[in-house]
Amino acid sequence: MRKPRITVIGGGTGIPVILKSLRDKDVDITAIVTVADDGGSSGEIRHALQMTPPGDLRNVLLAMSDMPKLYERIFQYRFAETDGALAGHPLGNLIIAGISEMQGSTYHAMQLLSKFFHTTGKIYPSSENALTLHAVFTDGHEVVGESKIAGYKGMIDRVFVTNSYNQDEPTASRKVVESILESDMIVLGPGSLFTSILPNLMISEIGQALKETKADVTYVCNIMTQRGETEFFSDADHVRVLNKHLGDNVIDTVLVNIEPVPKEYMNTYQFDEYLVQVKHDFTGLQAQAQRVISSDFLRLENGGAFHDGDLVVEELLKILQVKS
């Protein structure tokens, strides 16, 4: 019998938590990773080489790899701020950039690196071109660039993507649509709603594939609201935004953490973008999704509130068992 196929879509530091826990399970994993990041090291590299940003791909590669910790530390090494043109760049970003140039595309680079680092599963950039994220706010103001969105004071109404270096319609990377259509489960998140998850779904081919797939589309709802993105959002608001952008009630299942984050626990200096715990609106959720699963998915670590990947994956596998 074939393994269940799970495709995880997102970016940032969210989906690596799920991928790391999925790696040890008897499932066929695919990761589809955002290419709209234009800040920090990724932004500098994408602008210099006009390539897809490497940072989110780097984090996913490490999460799905069985490489020894020493190799991981080397790949994640970040040059010191006194290192001139290299200042702040993780070594892994430069390696991905170099191999992308050598192989002719980031897609081919990730296939080579996946073999090199013995990854469990497949990794695809959501598009083979760098994308620019546009946010239109409720007051009509438009902000261009993922890294600039949180700086504008207002509520986001919608987002969309364009190709950064040509006028063509953004298209999905090869194998991406096929992976979505052939999956048994699609997992969205966890991660920044407007800047890590939606940039992938706003590629029309990916949005359409999510509507057509027979897979269970599961959203792992964020634990904390995020400054400049989801301030004052309930869990139902997160799902409403996803369905609105996709043009239909595409989300089948929502995973919601109901374990409280202890008061004063969050380190507001280290995690200053995260504000308060997401409020629950179960009536709103039930109107937006077929199934709502609320449980303790919380992991407290180093002054931050994160998803416990093992607990989330345990629930995902239960959903698959029910479907089969």
Rank of each mutant, 00 (worst) to 15 (best):
I9Q: 02
G10P: 12
G10S: 10
T13I: 06
G14S: 08
P16G: 05
V17F: 11
D24L: 12
D26Q: 12
A31C: 14
V35F: 04
G39M: 04
S41H: 08
M51I: 13
D56S: 07
N59S: 06
S65N: 09
S65P: 04
D66P: 03
K69W: 00
Y71H: 13
I74K: 06
I74T: 10
F75I: 15
E81W: 02
E81M: 09
T82L: 13
D83F: 06
G84V: 05
H89E: 05
G92C: 05
L94P: 02
S100N: 01
G104F: 08
Q111C: 08
K115P: 00
K115F: 01
F116A: 13
K122P: 03
P125S: 01
S126G: 03
N129T: 02
A130Y: 06
A135D: 09
V136M: 10
T138K: 15
H141S: 07
I156Y: 12
I156W: 10
V159Y: 04
V159E: 04
F160N: 13
V161I: 02
T162G: 02
Y165V: 01
K175N: 15
E178I: 00
E178K: 12
S179V: 01
I180Y: 03
E182N: 15
S183D: 12
L188S: 10
F194C: 05
F194Y: 15
N200C: 14
S204Y: 01
E205T: 02
K214W: 00
R227H: 15
G228H: 03
G228Y: 09
E229H: 14
T230P: 12
F233Q: 12
F233D: 14
S234D: 10
V239C: 12
R240W: 15
V241M: 15
V241N: 13
V241D: 10
D248C: 11
L255M: 14
V256A: 12
N257W: 07
I258W: 04
E259S: 15
E259D: 05
E259W: 04
E264K: 14
M266A: 10
M266P: 11
N267P: 03
Q270Y: 00
E273D: 12
L275A: 08
Q277F: 04
A289N: 05
R291D: 13
S294D: 10
D296T: 12
G309M: 05
V312H: 11
V313Y: 09
L317K: 02
K318A: 09
L320S: 02
K323R: 14
